[in-house]
Design a protein around this nucleic acid. Structure first.
Lengths: 334, 334
DNA sequence: TTGTAAGCGTTATCAG
DNA sequence: CTGATAACGCTTACAA
């Protein structure tokens, strides 16, 4: 097994407290003692045992990021930012995938990691405010995304309704008249999809544009394949549109493939807008117009709020909005 | 603070040992006792403290996956598979990003997490066998990827030379004569790039095809942008080719964009092959022909070897190859 | 079947 | 400046 403080202390002929002092770079250690201890450390190849240290200090130095699926580009990109961000504060990242499942989301909040992590950043997809309120333990928590957060917990999100309105207006202003929304989820199923659809609908209403239930194209599941299938179905069912607001970039990419296969040209026949501005959106042809959430502000804000909670901040949940841009590329050229 | 075994024991009027037995679902507990304890647990909302448990048992239940960058689709997809895989064995995943940097790679091996994790799956990019051998601590370790592994540690990889040969021959057999390789890194810099270039060169040699140093297109850095820039440069420098083997799918996607911008048509003017079969490769137009490593076998094998090591298996490092397919799509149609 | 007590490897308090 | 010694919360012989 690995060497312990005891071993080092024995070899150096001092108490473990002194070794501990050396290891933690405590100032008041006589240089000669320090040298002797250091020699023993080197000889034994001693490395502190994180767990024990963490148990003793009560600080684990780990924060968990619970997200639906790490292979979704948006979340992978977010995780990368979080990881880098917290690394600067000497935290490590524990990734938890919930697969968007109710059971997993509960388990995450239930404090499966009770005592293992100092804080949790969590993007739920199906849990509602009440459930979150009820299930959450004492671990500092910051929520990401579009769910309605309970009043007691911190929450960061993009204004999805405003962004969806901006996307829809952008299509309308380029002269398109029949705008569809891809990614509709029947009532209550999915908070994010719901908000985006609401923004889309409100833009249609405000502009007096054509509105039709057929233009709410449902998707069973998420991702590019589901989107492709959904658009194929809609086209075959005779739904006609010249603009398409998509749930996210993956959906937009799937949609563009379906459109191409059916002989429609983007942007001439149909203008397409995505959401997230994942890296790939710059490499589709044409490039994908998309809502770009300020990922950096999102993670930075979330981590700041989490730190404040971990430092013991009390008080009601705070709710912060971060900005977005509409990045215009070829898919909506007019 | 959270409730502890003590609290529960006090409330239930039993010893902490009994509570512990109930929590760990130890069989021989009198039902009435169990019920009383369970009631106390529920009342207090007791959740076991993972750290303490882990310290006592010596098993932490965490394995780390150290990879260059989580936002790279290939690694994100791999991480997703690993996460799911180990979840089935009740392990959790700690993600470590090395950013392909020497310092970070050392730190990972150095056992920064000494005692925090039960095992480590590590995909190095710059560390060589000797350094790995020297730096690794006592934590069970499995290496992923193309570096030359030291003889003492387990290692799983795809036969990169064979795969690069297959990709190159595929282009040659479709009648192309000037095949370039995108992603060349001058000597020794990058093991993966080196092996793939070697496979490419050996296929050219075996088939007597045209070979030219200009056809080794260098990239500064990785990813789609770097690839796009590299191809633009090569074309401007007058390099001519009708087939292109790319370091990975991202590079291929960047290359296709550069080719399109220069008025070249894929696959008519240039056939393109990628590597990894990331999700997006099915959504480019045309679809991207690519080397598909058997990700599932890769992670499954790695985790199996790691489990064996964590169970105390001794012996020299094992070296396993997992398979690959060449997935043919539109980008190399002839 | 249940309780007592000794760790697990640190940190932290308080004398000396 | 350094040494005992008590936590941290749990598991696990060993007893009862």
């Amino acid at each position: 097994m690995s060497a312990t403080l005891q071993d080092v202390a024995a070899l150096a002929g001092v108490s473990i407290k002194t070794v501990s002092n050396v290891v933690r770079e405590y100032q008041h250690v006589r240089p000669s003692t320090r040298a002797r201890v250091q020699a023993a450390i080197d000889e034994l190849g001693y490395v502190p045992h994180s767990l024990a240290r963490r148990l003793a200090t009560g600080r684990t130095g780990m924060i968990a990021f619970a997200l639906p699926a790490i292979e979704t580009p948006y979340f992978a990109e977010l995780a990368a930012v979080v990881s880098t961000e917290i690394g600067g504060f000497d935290y490590r990242l524990l990734i938890e995938q919930t697969a968007g499942g109710l059971a997993d989301e509960r388990a995450v909040l239930r404090g499966r990691e009770q005592g293992l992590i100092d804080g949790l950043i969590f993007q739920p997809t199906v849990l509602d405010a009440e459930a979150i309120e009820q299930l959450r333990g004492s671990t500092p928590l910051v929520l990401l995304g579009e769910i309605a957060a309970p009043p007691t917990v911190d929450h960061v999100m993009v204004d999805n309704i405003a962004a969806a309105r901006a996307a829809t207006f952008h299509l309308l202003h380029s002269g398109r008249t029949r705008i569809a929304f891809l990614g509709h989820v029947p009532t209550g199923g999915h908070a994010t999809a719901g908000l985006r659809a609401r923004g889309y609908l409100s833009a249609l209403a405000d502009s007096g544009a054509h509105r039709d239930d057929d233009l709410l194209i449902p998707m069973t599941g998420f991702g590019a394949f589901a989107a492709e299938a959904a658009v194929v179905d809609a086209l075959e069912a005779g739904v006609r549109f010249d603009g398409l607001v998509c749930f996210d970039d993956l959906a937009a990419i799937g949609a563009m493939k379906a459109l191409a296969r059916s002989g429609r040209v983007v942007p001439d026949d149909v203008g397409v807008v995505g959401w997230d501005d994942i890296l790939m959106s710059q490499f589709t042809s044409p490039g994908l117009t998309t809502v770009r959430p300020d990922k950096s502000a999102l993670t930075r804000t979330a981590f700041r709020m989490l730190r404040e909670r971990m430092d013991g901040a009390d008080g009601p949940g705070r709710h912060e909005l971060v900005g977005f841009d509409l990045v215009v590329r070829g898919s909506t050229a007019s």
